[in-house]
Design a protein around this nucleic acid. Structure first.
Lengths: 213, 213, 213, 213
DNA sequence: GACTAATCGAGACGGTACGTCTGGTCTTCCG
DNA sequence: CGGAAGACCAGACGTACCGTCTCGATTAGTC
């Protein structure tokens, strides 16, 4: 992430590390209280005890700031070891749903995605700091399942394996988001159990009969 | 006794029917050019050749207007008869992906969902005029598959059947949206085939071993 | 001043006449309290109970607004009839000095002149609404003095007469401004008497020996 | 054991003498290009190749810096010896008018005067470094005219003499400033001749009939 | 054929936030 | 310790929209 000036220190006063932390925290607090559309950078600055210019010096605008503020939320996700692949998946999906239940994530995430439909750089930022970053969970789950003997050791084609990871991620993340944000119903244990069952059975079946009939 | 549209016409000049049409079309045009966040009602009014007050007299605000403008897009979805359940699903998913590829839908839909996280009335509006409205496709697909003998005639429990419809909708819509808008990759034929395979295998497997272990 | 649409009423809501009055009064009040350099249009708007946009819709900026606000002050100048030309002049010069003693005039007028050195349109505005507007006093004084027989009925050359009016105005206005604002000493009765004496003697002498020997 | 106060060697880097010169020159250059209101200390610092802090260490603010930068311009004024009092006055007035024609003087001087209406210290600074400093010209002119026999050797009352000097200065400076900056017309030879004639005739007449009628 | 009542276009209104710019101050490192 | 560099807080700038309002002008149906 940091590859600006590796050796030589830049002249002038260095940027305050505390400011960045305060700004991101204030952004999340403002998301909770106001939601994305009523969040203003002036308000964030006031909450963080910081001047507006300090924010604009570090982030191009509201969208990028919100993405960074929300991205930190997802770093607390981790794959629990519940003994079986199905249980592990259920666990992480429940965690994911819990994060999406927090208002700072709900409001910020969808708005950022909406904005990213017209801003390639923003889409990249979302992908880098949220999506790709969390694919580690899928990989970790696969490795653990292979160790348990629940999955075959390796996919035949490495490219095919990557495609499967992507598909899993799209289905899991998409379904949970749609359930909670669009359908507006809770992704509770019962729903997660049903969803995980369908997902696993589908994946196993697809692995058994690769591609076409 | 009807309170909505009384038989007797209200006094005064009636609302122009042409205005509503022009406003919705102008809204979509503005979405294409500007995206949700830069769309302004003043601009929409100018495009539609209409005064701002004419818009505010009919819609509470930007969000509701955009939802109505986008909702019309999804009405053109229909379930093609391609001979098999899998092929039918693939067909409708591809149509859905095609709509999400249109900029007026991408930008408007996600933004509306984002706003709805803090506006219960807006969520209702989205659910009524978009989500529930399109569940007809799932029902229609099930009926047709039952007629073909691809699915058992009826689920044991009517409540359980509704739950399955919801799950299917969340998974399908969520996965396609996530694929196209978040992952930013095309939901092309190859991907749709893989996705449909997993979905169908999962549903069949789940139907075979209902719920418990 | 007003030559836009003499006959036809423009469409739309007409501009509030009360707003303009309130804005100019608020501008003078702000000049008194803050002076030109610390006067902000936001503050003026707040004092006038008006939105910033309402100010910007009518005036291009701070400079023009201040000129208009100050110009109104000079409209209260009038030539008193004190029986002799010298006494009349002393009277109006004292009035002029009294206005320049008011803080809203001191601060605003000089700043506007300073700005006008880089803004031709502003200089024009000052000239039209302040300088030329008050030359009436010089003309009025001349007419009255001619009626009294203190001055010959008419200058030989009309162009020469205009030049004399300009000279008188430059000398009178310049001397009073310099005395009060630069030298920072009061233009009191004693000073005015001395100044008027020099001015009148000079003018009479120059009239007697036109141009040079 | 570390010594904080070395006795022999004076610690610290001495203040750069070149900096002050560069800053004042840069200030005048910025006045020419931007005028007072758009001149910023950051810009001056950049032009002078100096840090902002270096300016603030030497001047309290923009106003004082500009006054010092402009004051230097007036030091080049000198009373030419053209043979007669009238000609001498015409000469120095033309010089004064020439300086006021330079943009760095026009813009800076009037703005400083405007600011000084609300800042006693600034008014003092202007009076000391510009006004009083140039009264030498009036005194010098009087001495020379007395030597030539054009003026009586000494005024009856020393206080009265000082009053006359002040009056002359107010009238001369005021008229030229008003002519060039407010009326916006050139103080050319013709105008200066007419003005000088009125001034001298007025002064001589006033000297002949002191004060009362 | 006037009257009534709601519509229409236009555009001014009071607000609020924008993203930028400047003013002064402070913190860092270099000479 | 002076000076260059530049980040910092504070706050005004002029613009853009918001949603409301006030106009005069239509455009029906009702008397």
């Amino acid at each position: 992430m940091q590859s600006r000036t590796p050796a030589t220190t830049r002249p002038g006063r260095p940027r305050s590390a505390a400011a960045a932390t305060a700004i991101l925290a204030a952004t999340r607090a403002a998301l909770v209280e106001l939601g994305w559309s009523k969040l203003t950078l002036g308000d964030v600055a006031a909450r963080a005890g910081v001047a507006k210019t300090t924010i604009y010096r570090r982030w191009p605008g509201k969208n990028e700031l919100v993405v960074d503020a929300v991205a930190e939320l997802f770093d607390e996700l981790e794959l629990p070891d519940r003994g079986s692949l199905a249980a592990d998946i259920e666990g992480v999906v429940l965690q994911f749903a819990a994060i999406l239940d927090r208002p700072e994530a709900r409001s910020g995430l969808m708005a950022a995605v909406a904005e990213s439909t017209r801003d390639e750089a923003l889409r990249e930022r979302i992908r880098d700091s949220i999506v790709e970053r969390q694919k580690r969970l899928v990989l970790q789950g696969r490795t653990r399942a292979q160790a348990r003997g629940e999955l075959p050791p390796e996919s035949s084609d490495p490219e095919d394996a990557a495609r499967t990871v992507d598909l899993i991620f799209d289905v899991v993340a998409g379904a949970v988001v749609h359930r909670t944000l669009v359908s507006g119903r809770p992704a509770d244990e019962e729903w997660v159990r049903g969803f995980t069952q369908v997902l696993l059975l589908g994946l196993r079946g697809a692995a058994a009969s690769p591609d076409g009939p």
